[in-house]
Design a binder for these strands. Structure first.
Length: 811
RNA sequence: GCGGCUGUGGCGGAAUUGGUAGACGCGCCGGCCUUAGGAGCCGGUGGGCAUGCCCGUGGGGGUUCGACUCCCUCCAGCCGCACCA
């Protein structure tokens, strides 16, 4: 037997058992069992090697999976790789390899490390999104959405990344910069593929009430969808005989509209006025990047030389073009109410336009609060909130307006002008337009091309043999779609495929998926709060509507874990502060690394790595191992599995730890305090071991406590947990139910009661459990320290908390 | 600007419903055992001074017998949104 804790011996040994016996595999029959759980960690992008953040998030998922198995649930914990897309392709370009090769190499590396970490994965369901057997079904889903009009092609002003040489979805543009490479995006007018996620805006918003997610993620999604209720009101330009609808959330301020503004991109601007000034203004505004436009400090604009009629009072108000009005939101034109809107007010000041108060309140204009209306004809005196609907109804009577709802959410732009992605299964026929590739011809495989460098149009266009096909409808010459899909399409349904990963007949069997879904516990990074988590919800709803699924929400519970930093900074190669999991697994073992990252602090918060801290956890695991080997050699196995004799402090401590760890794992994800409880148990064992070794009863309790420590540490340090438990009991810990604390051992026969005088701690006294309030108060009063403070004072009130505290309040 | 989160020893962090502030770990100090190694065991460790008391959870105020915890207000840091009509 080894003389010291050697994870390099212990860890491979147990990994081999789990691999040989397929311990973590779970059948789909077991999903039919009510008592099952789907525990899922977001799948990794296989570019390069895993980093410490991967180790953390999979350690979290694994702790939850292990705990749930041992409380009797059939747990599905699968693994896969989000292999297509920019992260993998850019990594390939950087390293000069073909993406197919670099991705495969990276997947091998991820798989190897996941195994070396001992994560309890059902490997039989492993998948990679770049595998034709997977993306065949990605294409199949695309076609179902295409049939329903939920995937469509249109020309629009879209975000273009000049470095990655592709269009991006709105969600992938952060502050006007590309989410992946950070370069400033440009706006281009292009024909592209979109998913009609906006059809689901209301449901995506309302159903957030049905999931148990961190509030900040829910808030971020709400804000991103950005639903606002208001009215669409028509302003007519008499000279041109054209109606211009505008969207407003404040129809109550219509009487205060003193001018009218159109976005520079509005198609009618140049029709209304083609002076050089307007031309120049529009051209400049359109050329500016979104960022430059947002940074403009002062309002700018140009009058259009026309007026529109304010429908509530018939006033002619002047029209302007100005870049503070956005074409993408509402109708691309607004009514301006400078008295009650700060932006309109600024513009009015600059252009010397009239400012009129129509709502009372505030000291000066602009006033954006509520109050009674003025200067508003028949609505004078009515509170603005009440007038809101009345005005809309009144306008609706003769078609001058109607209630309206607006969203910030835009349709999801899914096509990419890049090589390494799932081909879009569409053929362009000169006769029949966009034609779906028939299901029996799927997958449309990604062809091998030599030159896949991004240069603004899809590299697939160069694969002529692949591009030129016959039209599935008429058999005439046609061309394949050469754009590929956004990676986020691949990851919007992978959690469904895991349920039925080997199905060659269908993407999945509905009954199987309905049994497993929804995911009971989803775990991943906050960076996907909007992107992936919104897209996956959209896919789930659309697929449910098509009859392929029985759930409306894919992820019942969500947990987002924090980042691990080093020296307070995000780890990066350029900073040189990267912690390589491999290096530490070699040095301390996977158990130390896993336990340490969970011990670092609350896992939803960022935490700073320290080598010394990791060393501390290694010391603890080492202590547990030494204790276990020593106890195994010097004491007898437990007769009947239960300790003997009068309960000692250590036995009580063991039950306390069982109770504590169970609560920390079951009710909240307090891994740090759960681990601390096991450390306490081990420390207590060392403290009492000599004394306990004196009697057979003591020995049995020491053995029980040590085995319990192994059992409780198992979800965090599975190899050592299994080793310790086997040494002491001969059993396999993962086959044992989670231990139950004996309630009788959680209470003691005397309680230490705190005695306060005027709320200040003065003494602690021992009080028998179950003592009456009077008895407890009497014992408290007998304390000499307390008596000294009570001496010569009048007690006006005594607070007694049974078993906890006595507080004497003096007059 | 709007919305959210977080402020506790030298450091990371604990503290069920308001009831012993600082669990556990790191670091540091002391002892033991060994005395060439990233060893082990035991003990100590919020601050102050007259060894009993005082002060102490970002600042100030409030509620309460009692506040890290609840309320108001201010400050700092982080995150999200940001001309969305």
């Amino acid at each position: 037997m080894a003389e010291r804790y050697d994870p390099q011996l212990i860890e491979p040994k147990w990994q081999k058992v789990w691999a040989d016996e397929h311990t973590w595999e779970v059948s789909n029959e077991e999903a039919a069992d009510e008592n099952h759980a789907y525990v899922l960690v977001m799948l990794p992008y296989p570019s390069g090697e895993p980093h410490i953040g991967h180790l953390k998030v999979y350690s979290v998922g694994d702790a939850i999976a292990h705990y749930r198995r041992r409380i009797g649930e059939k747990v599905l914990q699968p693994m896969g790789y989000d292999a297509f897309g920019l992260p993998a392709e850019n990594h390939a370009i950087k390293t000069g390899q073909h993406p197919r090769d670099s991705t495969a190499a990276s997947i091998d590396e991820f798989r190897r490390q996941f195994r070396s970490w001992g994560i309890s994965i059902d490997w039989s369901r492993e998948l990679a999104t770049d595998d034709p057997s997977y993306y065949r079904w990605t294409q199949w889903i695309f076609l179902r959405l295409f049939e329903k009009g939920l995937a469509y092609r249109k020309e629009a002003a879209v975000n273009w990344c000049p470095v990655d040489q592709t269009v991006l979805a709105n969600e992938q543009v952060i502050d006007g910069h590309c989410e992946r490479c950070g370069s400033e995006v440009e706006i281009r007018q292009l024909e592209q593929w979109f998913f009609k996620i906006t059809d689901y805006a209301d449901r995506l918003l309302d159903d957030l009430d049905t999931v148990d997610w961190p509030p900040h993620v829910v808030t971020m999604q709400r804000n991103w969808i950005g639903r606002s209720h208001g009215a669409e009101v028509i302003f007519r330009c008499e000279e041109l005989g054209t109606d211009y609808p505008v969207f407003t959330t404040r129809p109550d301020t219509l009487f205060g509209a003193t001018f009218f503004v159109m976005a520079p991109e509005h198609p009618d601007v140049l029709r209304l006025s083609d002076t050089p000034e307007v031309h120049e203004y529009v051209n400049r505004a359109v050329r500016e990047s979104p960022e430059e436009r947002a940074e403009a400090k002062e309002k700018t604009g140009v009058p259009l030389g026309h007026t529109v009629t304010n429908p509530v009072n018939g006033e002619q108000i002047p029209m302007y073009v100005a870049d503070y009005v956005l074409m993408e939101y509402g109708t691309g034109a607004i009514m301006a109410v400078p008295g009650h809107d700060e932006r309109d007010f600024e513009f009015a000041k600059k252009f010397d336009l009239p400012v009129r108060r129509v709502v009372e309140g505030g000291d000066e204009l602009p006033y954006t609060g509520d109050g009674p209306m003025v200067n508003s004809g028949r609505f004078d005196g009515v509170h603005n909130r009440e007038a809101f609907d009345e005005i809309v109804e009144w306008l609706a009577e003769d078609g001058r307006g109607k209630p309206a709802v607006n969203y910030k959410l835009r349709d999801w732009l899914l096509s990419r002008q890049r090589y390494w992605g799932c081909p879009i299964p569409i053929v362009h026929c000169p006769e029949h337009g966009l034609v779906a590739v028939p299901d029996d011809q799927l997958p449309v495989e990604l062809p091998d091309v030599e030159d896949y460098a991004p240069r603004g149009r899809s590299p697939l266009a160069a694969a002529e043999d692949w591009v030129n096909v016959t039209c599935p409808t008429c058999g005439g010459p046609a061309k394949r779609e050469t754009d590929t899909m956004d990676t986020f399409v691949d990851s919007s349904w992978y959690f469904l495929r895991y349920c039925d990963a080997h199905n060659d007949e269908a993407a999945w069997d509905r009954e199987v998926v309905d049994n497993w879904m929804p995911v009971d516990q989803y775990i991943g990074g906050i960076e996907h709060a909007i992107l992936h988590l919104m897209y996956a919800r959209f896919f789930t709803k659309a697929l449910a509507d098509l009859g392929y699924l029985g759930v409306q929400e894919p992820f019942a519970n969500l947990f987002t874990q924090g980042m691990i930093t080093r020296d307070g900074a995000k780890m990066s190669k350029s900073r040189g502060n990267v912690v390589s999991p491999d290096e530490y697994v070699e040095r301390y073992g996977a158990d130390t690394l896993r336990t340490y990252v969970l011990y670092l602090g609350p896992i939803d918060q960022d935490a700073d790595w320290s080598d010394e801290g990791a060393g501390g956890i290694n010391r603890f695991l080492s202590r547990l191992w030494r204790l276990a080997t020593d106890v195994a050699e010097t004491t007898e196995p437990l007769a009947g599995g239960t300790p003997q004799g009068e309960p000692t402090v250590l036995l009580r401590k063991a039950h306390w730890a069982i109770d504590k760890v169970g609560k920390d794992l079951g009710r909240r994800f307090a891994f740090n305090t759960a681990i601390a409880a096991v450390i306490e148990l081990v420390n207590e064992s060392y403290r009492h071991r000599e004394e306990l070794m004196q009697t057979p009863e003591g020995q049995s309790q020491l053995r029980f406590a040590t085995a319990t420590a192994g059992s409780l540490i198992f979800p965090f340090a599975p190899h050592l947990g299994a080793e310790v438990y086997e040494l002491l009991t001969g059993e396999r810990v993962w086959e044992q139910p989670w231990p139950a604390a004996d309630p009788a051992l959680l209470v003691t026969d005397t309680n230490e009661v705190v005695v306060q005088v005027n709320g200040k701690l003065r003494d602690r006294v021992a009080v028998p459990a179950g003592a009456s309030d009077d008895e407890q108060e009497r014992l408290a009063r007998e304390s000499t320290k307390v008596a000294a403070h009570l001496d010569g004072h009048q007690i006006v009130k005594t607070i007694v908390v049974p078993g906890k505290l006595v507080n004497f309040v003096l007059g």
